[in-house]
Every structure is written in C-alpha cells, then in structure tokens.
C-alpha cells in the first residue's frame, strides 16, 4: 500500500510517500522559517499563502525522486489538526480533492498522533505500550500509548510549550527565530553553575508542566546582568539545564507511574542534544529504553503523516468527501483504527 502524506499545519509544507512494503520512500519539505523570521514568529496568513504555492511543486518533486506516478498512490493522508486553520485547509483541500480525482480514499490525521508514531519509522521501532513525550513549539505532553489510537493524556503544559519557552527566551537573549537551535548553540559556551533556574512543578506530584515562569526568570537574569560579558551564554545554559532536568524528572515519573519500560520522544525540541543526553541518562537509571525519530523527522514533516495514515488506512479507515479541519483537537479523543 502506497500512502501519500501531506502536512501543512503550521510553517512547514511537508509531503512524503510511505510504502507498507518498502517503508519510507522519500519525504520533501519546504520550511517557511525565513519568511516568518522577519516578523519574529509565525504569521498565520503568510503561512497559508505560502503553503498554497508549495504543495503541488513538492508533490511533483516527491514523485520524481521516487519514480512514482499519482496513479500508484493507494491512499492520501493529510493533517486535519491541531494547527492553524487556514494552513490546515490548504493541505486538506489539495489532498482531499487529489484523492477524489484519483478515486482513492483519504484520511485526516491528528498532528500529534503523527508525531508520536514517528519513531516507529525507524529501523528498530519501539513496541507498544510506551510513554510518549511530545515536545514542540505548540505542545508539551506526556501520553500513555497502548496502541495506535489508544492514548491517555498523563500531563501537559499549563502555559507555554517547551519550544515556545525556548523561542521566547532566545528572543530575550537577542537570538533569531526560531530560537531553539540558536539557544542550544549559545548554551554550549555557557558555564555550569553560574546561574540556577528552578525546575518548575517538580516539587509536587503530577505530570503537568509549566514553562512560562522559567522564561520570566530568565528575563530577570538578563536584565540584571545586562552588559556582563558571557552572561547571555550562562543564562542560556541555565535555562536549557532547567528544561532538560524538568523533562527528565517528569518522564521518569511517567515511566514509574505507568510501569512502562519504553519512552518515545518526538517533536521539534527533541532535536536538542542536551535534552537527549539527559533523557538517555534518566532512562539508563530507570532501566528503560528511549526512542527518537531521526532528526529530520523530529520537526513537522509529511513522513509521519503518511505513516499515521497507513496505520489507520490499512484497516480501511477513511473520510467522506468533506474535509473539515480541526484547529483544536484533543489527542485523547482519538479512537483505535476502524474501517468506515
């Protein structure tokens, strides 16, 4: 079964072909980072306007790379939500009408389900059940995963997502957008122990996160040490340490609470090397295993959508001809794959 995946939920246009026999054949991506960098963050209307210029050329590129024709596609999966409504509608519109024209089934996919299944595209995929940590620009959540579509939300951010906190703190430090990778680079020059920021919400039970206070405290430090040489790098270091420790503490707790032996980590922030090392160390101590998608599948991409599409479409799940999108959509409301 050959599945086309289409992702347009935010500022990346991603398309991919997943083959149930051959695995991921190829994925192509256009990032709008430069477009939004001028404005210091994603401008939804600009995102939508860009997606509609990119989808078909990326599809042509994908088919050429994989030497396939549209007629060989057996099903089309697209991101239905959560995300920016206008951006989602572009991908959904092209994908749904393409499927109708080809007389193939189509299915709208939950973006976070796609993220949490992404590590299953790797050569040694985790078996179910596992705990998933999803850390991106829009989400921070811990999910207990019993199987495809069997999700229990263990905890989530009560304010800023981890990636959002990275981006905002990076901005305060005068770094460009998106701030996550830039902050990680700066933190490499920072010294251990010069500053210390709290590990929010780790001193009480529960698996929820809060990152906006961390950003505020970073802002206070930046003000207080304005003009001090090296302060920015030291603050970046302290911020990253605080996020890494907090994530590791909560993940350990989630593994203990659920009795799971496997942790799956996905989303843009999971590209962070320090966070990865901290999670690896935690897992070793907890006698658990950690799984990550390859770096280019951590951030938004079409491959994870194609794969999630296959997980569901292989049993015959598909949509009608309408293509409503769901800018807000709870992950826990999903059901296991079922034929329609």
């Amino acid at each position: 079964m050959l599945i086309l995946g289409v992702e347009t939920s935010c500022d990346e246009t991603g398309l991919a072909l997943y083959d149930s026999a051959g695995g991921l054949l190829s994925h192509v991506l256009h990032s709008q980072v430069d477009l939004h960098a001028l404005h210091g963050g994603v401008v939804p209307e600009l995102a939508s306007r860009d997606h509609i210029r990119r989808v078909i050329p990326l599809l042509d590129q994908l088919l050429q790379q994989t030497d396939r024709r549209t007629a060989e596609i057996d099903g089309i999966a697209y991101t239905r939500g959560p995300g920016l409504a206008g951006a989602l509608l572009v991908g959904a519109g092209v994908a749904r009408s393409l499927a109708w024209a080809l007389d193939r089934p189509a299915l709208g996919i939950h973006h976070m389900e796609a993220h949490l299944l992404a590590p299953l595209l790797e050569p040694e995929p985790p078996a179910f059940p596992f705990v998933a940590l999803l850390v991106s620009g829009g989400h921070t959540m811990l999910v207990q995963v019993a199987g495809v579509g069997r999700y229990r939300l263990l905890g989530e951010s009560v304010d800023d997502a981890a990636g959002e906190a990275f981006d905002k703190t990076a901005k305060l430090l005068g770094l460009g957008y998106p701030g996550g990778p830039a902050l990680e680079r700066l933190a490499r020059q920072g010294r251990q122990g010069v500053f210390r920021l709290p590990r929010p919400m780790t001193d009480r039970p529960g698996l929820d996160f809060s990152f906006s206070g961390l950003k505020t405290q970073a802002r206070n430090l930046i003000r207080r040490h304005e003009g001090t040489e090296d302060a920015a790098a030291d603050i970046a270091h302290a911020f990253q340490e605080a996020v890494a420790d907090t994530l590791a503490i909560k993940c350990r707790r989630a593994l203990t609470d659920t009795g799971a032996g496997r942790l799956v980590v996905s989303g843009g922030v999971s590209a962070n090397g320090v966070i990865r090392t901290r999670l690896d160390d935690m897992a070793r101590a907890a006698n658990a295993e950690v799984y990550y998608p390859r770096l280019d599948l951590c951030t938004d991409n079409g491959a994870m959508v194609a794969y999630a599409g296959w997980c569901r479409m292989q049993v015959g799940e598909c949509d009608g001809l309408d293509f409503d999108v769901r800018p807000r959509w709870s992950l826990a409301s999903l059901q296991p794959p079922a034929a329609d």
């Binding site: 939508s48 509609i52 989808v55 078909i56 599809l59 549209t70 206008g86 509608l89 572009v90 959904a92 519109g93 092209v94 994908a95 749904r96 009408s97 393409l98 499927a99 109708w100 024209a101 080809l102």
Partner: peptide, 15 residues
Amino acid sequence: RISVAVAQGLARGLG
C-alpha cells in the same frame, strides 16, 4: 484558498 487548493488537487489528479 479552498477554491484554488481544490482546483489544484483535482487538476493534478486528473492530469
């Protein structure tokens, strides 16, 4: 954009 996106998908699929 719905109008244009659907036209794009139809035309690409129908060739």
